[in-house]
Design a protein around this nucleic acid. Structure first.
Length: 628
DNA sequence: GTAGGGTTAG
């Protein structure tokens, strides 16, 4: 055997005359050079010549050319390369098929990518992953999961690339746990990409603690893993934790990038921390071309009450998208600047992007809060015609608000009855609010009962209903409502107001006098009550339960959290900057009247943000025009 | 040739 093997070369030498291998066709050499150098259009032209001569080049050149198509976003040329590779019934090799799929995915041509995928005689993990991640990006979750199963059935093991993208397609936390199990089985749980996805998806299912646990098990989290966690807390409503983690991240030696800053701004927005938001703004400056970050900054200024700065940010944005416009329009509307909001919307129609359903919500909000009945109807009706936007539940809610505030209660009821869907609690609460403003007791009782049917523990509706009965001397009914409250142990979410002073947040809870300066605040409050009384302030006891004596009612109004905050704000006011107060609940009518008069008597501007909108109090009037 | 994190309302 050994002797034979030694003889083979000699035999070959005899059979084939000695000659050097034939040189490649010069066009092939040229083509390879063009593809390598990135001479895109010349390479495409050379490919056409190859076609004419029936020549095929090497895979590396084709791979380079596909990359060039992607870089030049040249869809048609990409298709030509595809055609060239399959001409003469050739099947491109696996590696090139994957490249072609990737190209189509980047072009957003999922169907064409799928055709390449389906035609492949052999597929590897890259082929499957390219398809799966394209599907998850398009939110075609079911199909993505189906492909994950198929690939496993065909004996192809998913890798970390596959899992990091397919995790986002989990429809339930049960399916997430099942895929998490697969990840552990394949030993891929320590991959940073897989981890950040796991943290993200567990948090999206509301399990922030589990996300945090995965984070804590990460020996060396990278920036994206930090960002995942910070983002999850910021979005999940725990802004304090988000900011805390941000501090820890900096201590661990990482620098915040656009994503970190966006999440931190969102946390500031959620907690209404204007001063902290301003500090973050300094770091945002170097990323002024980042649209998402700029939008977050804009929103922070709107929601934290500095509309001038928000407008400044908006004007300076080199590029604006539909979110930028919508945020600014809603911001103006929430600050009571309805006509500015509508003017901006008109200019958006001319210079801006196509409005979406959220833009229209801001516009309708502006109309309803300024009593612009006709405009509201016009915008509502034009949604379908002009922008092909189907009005959703929220738009109907805005219209009920618009009609209700304008005192057209009968029309509002008819509008609700004509809706295509069942009215939800938001609609009934809206109608109830309008009934309270326009003092329609019968309809209010009806609306309140609808709210309580859907949400039996709604405190505001209980109080309102009880007061309506008490005012019309229906004592039995009033007593029944109060008993129902006791039985259900309806608990009021305590009213909380807060002021950011320096770097300290001073929180005031209704009736709580535990603040270190409580004595001073009580004295200031008494002084303010005296001064405003001379200007005509009369405690409005509609906002407390009518089952106590008048004196007690006044006493309970006196220590509403926003009154404590106003007193504290006036004590610490320089008289130049506005006093900014944030409140977790809606401002009460009595405190609203009080704030107007304090602004007048103390010559200060008070800005109170309740959970719906902003009130700017100045010279005895409020920007909401008492219409909120 | 395949992968992870951030923005508007509710």
């Amino acid at each position: 055997m050994r002797a034979f093997a030694r003889r083979v070369p000699q035999l070959l030498h005899l059979a084939v005359p000695p000659s050097s291998p034939s040189p490649p066709h010069p066009l092939l050499t040229t083509f390879a050079g063009l593809c390598q150098r990135g001479a895109f259009s010349d390479a495409i032209a050379a490919m056409a010549s190859l076609d004419a001569l029936g020549l095929s080049a090497d895979s590396i050149s084709y791979s380079n050319l596909i990359k060039l198509c992607v870089r030049h976003r040249a869809v048609e040329q990409g298709r030509l390369v595809h055609l060239h590779l399959t001409s003469g019934c050739r099947a491109p090799e696996l590696f090139l098929c994957n490249s072609l799929m990737g190209m189509y995915v980047r072009f957003g041509l999922i169907d064409e990518a799928r055709q390449v995928f389906d035609a492949m005689p052999v597929r590897n993990v890259v082929s499957w992953t390219t398809m799966i991640s394209a599907l998850t990006n398009l939110k075609l979750d079911e199909e993505a999961l189906r492909l994950l199963n198929s690939m496993q059935r065909e004996g192809i093991a998913p890798n970390m690339y596959t899992f990091s993208s397919v995790l986002r397609a989990c429809p339930t936390s049960a399916s997430l746990r099942s895929i998490h199990g697969c990840i552990l089985k394949h030993g891929l749980e320590s991959d940073a990409f897989v981890r950040s996805s796991l943290i993200d998806v567990y948090s999206k299912f509301g399990d922030l603690d589990y996300g945090y646990r995965i984070f804590n098990e990460t020996a060396t989290p990278d920036l994206v893993v930090w960002n995942s966690l910070i983002g999850c807390f910021a979005q999940g409503g725990d802004g304090y934790m988000a900011i805390n983690l941000f501090t820890q991240m900096k201590k661990a030696g990482f620098f915040a990038d656009q994503s970190t800053l966006t999440s931190v701004l969102r946390a500031c927005t959620g907690m209404v921390l204007l001063e902290m938001g301003r500090q973050v703004h300094v770091h945002v400056l170097k990323y002024n071309r980042d649209l998402i970050l700029s939008n977050a900054l804009l929103d922070m200024y709107c929601k934290c009450g500095d509309l001038e700065e928000a407008h400044e940010v908006f004007c300076r944005m080199p590029e604006k998208d539909v979110i930028s416009w919508s945020t600014m329009i809603s911001g103006l509307a929430q600050h009571g600047r309805s006509s500015d909001a509508l003017t901006l919307f008109e200019s958006m129609k001319v210079f801006g992007p196509k409005p979406n359903h959220i833009t229209i919500l801001g516009v309708l909000f502006a109309c309803s809060h300024a009593g612009l009945l006709e405009d509201g109807w016009l915008y509502f009706r034009s949604m379908r015609q002009l922008w092909d936007i189907e009005p959703g539940r929220e738009h109907y809610g805005c219209m009920v608000d618009l009609l209700g505030r304008a005192g057209k209660l009968d029309e509002a009821v008819k509008f609700i009855a004509d809706m295509n869907f069942e009215p939800d609690i938001v609609i009934w609460r809206t109608l109830l609010g309008a009934c309270r403003v326009h003092k329609n007791a019968n309809l209010a009782a009806y609306a309140a009962n609808q709210v309580l049917r859907l949400e039996p523990e709604d405190e505001g509706s209980h109080i309102l209903l009880s007061n309506i009965y008490a005012d019309s001397h229906q004592w039995t009914e009033a007593e029944q409502v109060r008993m129902s409250m006791r039985d259900r142990r309806v608990k009021k979410e305590p009213g909380r107001s807060w002021i950011e002073l320096g770097k300290i947040i001073h929180v005031f809870v209704a009736g709580d006098m535990s603040h270190p300066q409580a004595d001073g605040i009580a004295k200031e409050l008494s002084k303010l009550l005296r001064r405003t009384t001379t200007l005509g302030y009369i405690p409005d006891t509609d906002f407390v339960l009518h089952d106590v004596g008048e004196e007690q009612k006044e006493e309970s109004l006196r220590y509403h959290s926003e009154k404590l905050a106003i007193a504290f704000g006036v004590m610490n006011s320089s008289g130049v900057k506005p006093i900014r107060i944030m409140k977790n609940l809606r401002i009460c009518g009595d405190c609203h009247a009080f704030a107007k008069l304090v602004a007048k008597s103390e010559r200060v501007t008070i800005i109170i943000r309740d959970h719906v909108r902003f009130h700017h109090f100045k010279d005895g009037v409020c920007s909401c025009g008492d219409y909120w």
